[in-house]
């Protein structure tokens, strides 16, 4: 089903949603937000695109497999937890950079962990939705 209203709105809203998800991700450590919500919003952006243009177009837009995102997310969380061990401290200890990075603000291992969660959530949701959407097709 093709709807011109939906598809033209989607073209505008999808980038906005992605931008908003990134905003949620970076404000997450001390204020409401974070990797999980951010990931959900980003997945919603792709989902909206899917409803408007179909599953093949989303796959072309995304370019990578959702499963790769899952693995990548898990890997980032793993790496963020290992810093403590490299510095001979406790496992999963949080480390922060002294100076703030523009746009991102304070950067440290908990933020890295959040990024991992962000990718993981996008990957999982998209994997589920793609499976359902493809089931529907055939």
């Amino acid at each position: 089903m093709y709807s011109i209203i939906l598809s033209s709105t989607t073209r505008i809203v999808t980038p906005l949603l992605l931008l908003f998800s990134f905003f949620l991700l970076i404000r997450g450590h001390n204020e409401p937000g974070g990797g999980f919500v951010g990931g959900l919003v980003a997945a919603t952006a792709f989902l909206l695109y899917l409803i408007a243009f179909g599953v093949l177009r989303v796959k072309r837009l995304l370019r990578i497999e959702p499963l790769f995102l899952i693995a990548l997310g898990l890997l980032i969380t793993l790496v963020s937890s290992l810093f403590g061990l490299f510095f001979q401290e406790e496992f999963m200890k949080g480390f922060w950079l002294k100076e703030e990075i523009p746009i991102l603000g304070k950067f440290g291992t908990p933020f890295l962990f959040d990024i991992g969660v962000y990718f993981l959530v996008i990957g999982v949701i998209l994997k589920i939705i793609f499976s359902l959407a493809e089931e529907d097709k055939d």
Binding site: L67, F68, I70, A71, L74, L75, L78, L82, E90, F91
Partner: peptide, 21 residues
């Protein structure tokens, strides 16, 4: 000392991630 305690979790986790890749 704490490395030994978390390795039983980290080893299967890392292995699973590699398998996913």
């Amino acid at each position: 000392m704490n490395l030994i305690l978390v390795l039983p979790i980290l080893i299967p986790f890392t292995t699973a991630i590699l398998c996913l890749f």
